[in-house]
Design a protein around this nucleic acid. Structure first.
Lengths: 209, 209
DNA sequence: TGGTGTGAATGCCTTCACAGCG
DNA sequence: CGCTGTGAAGGCATTCACACCA
């Protein structure tokens, strides 16, 4: 599995394949060709083979891929065979929405801590997790083996919170604040910029067709 | 302004330029070169010129771009000189977070209607807007000149809601449900797939570096 | 001279096409 | 024979490089 650089686009397609494979194994289909898998995912068959090729040789000439084997392999590659602990910084409307989001559990993520700076909110229980002061974040996180930090605080506070998350040893941040966070190279930040999405929409309205 | 196909990447960079230009005009800087603008945006100078070139010739050889003029031009191109009405379908945690999101106003978007199927929620007022039954959506939207519909309902209900939005004449949908909506070609759908983002994160955890 | 506008070069990603294997 | 794995071709976006303009 000596592998070269794999682009993010490839990874996100692997998740699509995995979703299809899960369905296939559910209905006891044991084998699938790249062409069929591609059709289900709306992707070119060669692309399917190339994507999988980055991680190994899973196919059998003349028959295709074993759905169960490939599914297991992808789950491993994609980290779906583990559960990752998550902490949320910021319990405003967005933070609350995230805490209540059922998708976390479905994707192998477990919310274990929530933080806010507002004394009004501290101590409250949300979805079984009690809100703690953001100043104690590092200490609390350190004892809980947290892998992912979510930044759901206002823009101004975002960089400070990011620094604290990094100090706590977190290597993976999902950032909802519309700023590009300045973090060390070994920390992966994934931005979800709602502003940008909204803005792009207004372009399409102003320039129909 | 006879223009060829402009990719979404270009559009999203135009918004970055616009942001910078707004700051520049605020501090009374009247002229900027593509190199300086590029530096502020972390982009190559030639790329800045190419992007602008899709929409006209705004620059002056030897001196650069007039910040005020360029800002006005971009605002027009990007639809920022207008206000667009928005309706939200689904008033769960996510819908509520959206209703409370200050970024809407900042981006020239105005929330004018909210819908839910839960009788418990109907009639409640959220951020000055009262929640209406989702069955009446078409009728209510029709009278309000709504340009953007936001889908913030569970996956299962998403396609139905999308159909209703389209029936109401909406041409622009921001979709938070993890399904690809099936809509006519003249309707623009922008997907925000939180599941995908979360999944990608778990890949980075499973494959550090 | 300083900086635009743009054809040519580069680089990345996707698709084509086919040798080779079961 | 069907289908994989992969080198080669194609397409698209970015960067380079420079003719031309104020």
């Amino acid at each position: 599995m000596a592998r070269k650089f794999v682009s993010e686009a490839v990874i996100s397609r692997l998740f699509i394949y995995l979703r299809e494979l899960s369905e296939l194994t559910k209905v006891n289909i044991n084998t699938i060709s790249s062409a069929e898998l591609g059709e289900r995912a709306n992707l070119n068959d060669a692309l399917v083979r190339k994507d999988l090729g980055y991680f190994g040789q899973f196919g059998v000439s003349g028959s295709g891929y074993n759905t169960r084997e490939l599914r297991r392999a992808l789950e491993k590659i994609l980290g779906k065979d583990k559960i990752w602990n998550v902490a949320v910084a910021g319990c405003g409307h967005l933070g609350m929405a995230l805490l209540a989001y059922p998708g976390f559990k479905e994707h192998g993520l477990k919310l274990v801590a929530a933080f806010d700076s507002d004394p009004e909110k501290i101590g409250k229980r949300i979805e079984g997790i009690s809100v703690r002061p953001i100043g104690q974040m590092s200490k609390i996180i350190a004892g809980k083996d947290v892998s992912i930090g979510i930044v759901a605080v206002p823009q101004k506070a975002a960089q400070d919170v990011a620094v604290k998350l990094v100090e706590s040893g977190i290597k993976c941040i999902l950032n909802f604040a519309p700023v590009s966070l300045d973090v060390p190279d070994d920390v992966k930040v994934k931005d979800v910029d709602l502003s940008r999405e909204l803005e792009t929409l207004s372009y399409f309205l102003a320039n129909p067709r």
